[in-house]
């Protein structure tokens, strides 16, 4: 018997076990590149597909959960509100790994309130904001992340300042905030793996050009503009917990953050040293870059050890949805006690 030529991960699954249905997005859509990295990183991390809940709202980005992890459970819900669905899912079963695929229209307008409160509660989820500055499915209107001066295809110019999802998330105390670019698969892959290792809300704003409505000259989120302006803060490395000791990190050359499962992320400075654990320093760097018109990417802020939703709720470790009846239905003596109190 010959050895299996198809590579498998640590739980014996091939990458094929992590793919989903064929994408129906436009050819060249940045979102498909993100989907590829979700598949790649979930496979590399050895996540069990049956333990994954893929949740989304409404929009092009929200269609993507169909295209990855076909063996997982997916829920394409209502506009901007995957965050609350996810909160319900994780309360019901805290053993699940949650992924939200959202977009700038979904998360930064109607979904803003839910996103904010999800971060406040530190709901365990990898939240991927596939950010292209326009509404795709309704044919090219500006979203709340459209830059000032960016034009629509038919020429109108955006004058209203954008929201920055990352500084917002940092301000809210999110313990994992990253910005990446669908055209930088290597970096996105590292960030996603680190996000899976994070406990609590991992928020990733991935700038993802819309080839149909926002890839023209005058758009600040076209492939060309983004490629020209992208400025990675650091070169990221990810050492998963199961490979500890196998990778040597040259001392003194990189920053390092350890995650609860033992995984480590390394940061090698590219231009100047950036401390991803310094929230205020991070704001300064991001704001300066914005003024200069630079597009900074990288793992902007990491803080481990914050209590999550499950800590706040004091729930049993087992999924409460499927606890045996004896644990969730008090006996007749309890009803009797409740009645006696009222007598």
């Amino acid at each position: 018997m010959t050895t299996n030529p198809v590579p498998t991960n640590q739980i014996g699954l091939t990458k094929q076990d992590y793919v989903g249905a064929k994408s129906t997005l436009c050819a060249g859509c940045g979102h498909d590149a993100i989907t590829s990295q979700i598949i790649q990183s979930a496979w590399e991390m050895g996540i069990e597909p049956h333990r994954v809940a893929k949740l989304s709202g409404i929009g092009c980005s929200s269609k993507t959960p169909t295209y990855f992890l076909g063996q997982a459970w997916g829920f394409n819900s209502v506009h901007g509100r995957a965050a609350s669905v996810c909160t319900g899912v994780t309360l019901a079963n805290r053993q699940l790994v949650n992924i939200i695929a959202s977009g700038d229209g979904d998360s930064m307008s109607i979904g803003m309130g839910q996103l904010v409160h999800m971060i406040r509660r530190n709901v365990p989820v990898v939240y991927i904001l596939e950010d292209n500055g326009v509404y795709g499915l309704t044919k090219g209107q500006f979203s709340a992340t459209a830059d000032v001066g960016s034009t629509l295809k038919h020429g109108s110019v955006n004058e209203i300042p954008p929201l920055d999802p990352c500084t917002l998330a940092m301000e809210l105390g999110c313990g994992f905030v990253a910005r990446s670019f669908s055209g930088n698969p290597k970096q996105l892959n590292m960030i996603l793996k680190a996000a899976f290792a994070h406990k609590g809300t991992a928020f990733i704003d991935v700038i993802s050009p819309c080839v149909t409505w926002n890839n023209h000259e005058g758009s600040t989120k076209s492939y060309k503009t983004l490629k020209d302006k992208e400025m990675p803060l650091h070169e990221l490395g990810f050492v998963p917990f199961y490979e500890l000791g196998a990778v040597e990190i040259p001392p003194g050359e990189a920053r390092e953050v350890e995650f609860p499962d033992g995984s480590r992320v390394t940061f090698r400075a590219i231009r100047e040293d950036y401390d991803p654990t310094d929230r205020f320093g991070g704001y300064r760097t991001i704001h300066k870059a914005r003024i200069k018109g630079e597009f900074l990417t990288g793992l902007l802020y990491v803080q481990q050890g914050k209590p999550t939703l499950h800590d706040f709720m004091h729930l049993t470790e087992a999924a409460i949805a499927t606890l045996p009846q004896a644990l969730v239905k008090p006996g007749p003596e309890v009803l009797q006690a409740c009645m006696d109190e009222l007598l």
């Binding site: 669905v85 899912v89 309360l91």
Partner: peptide, 10 residues
């Protein structure tokens, strides 16, 4: 949203 998500999750 929580109620629908939780019901879906069992």
């Amino acid at each position: 949203g929580v109620v629908i998500g939780a019901g879906w999750a069992g």
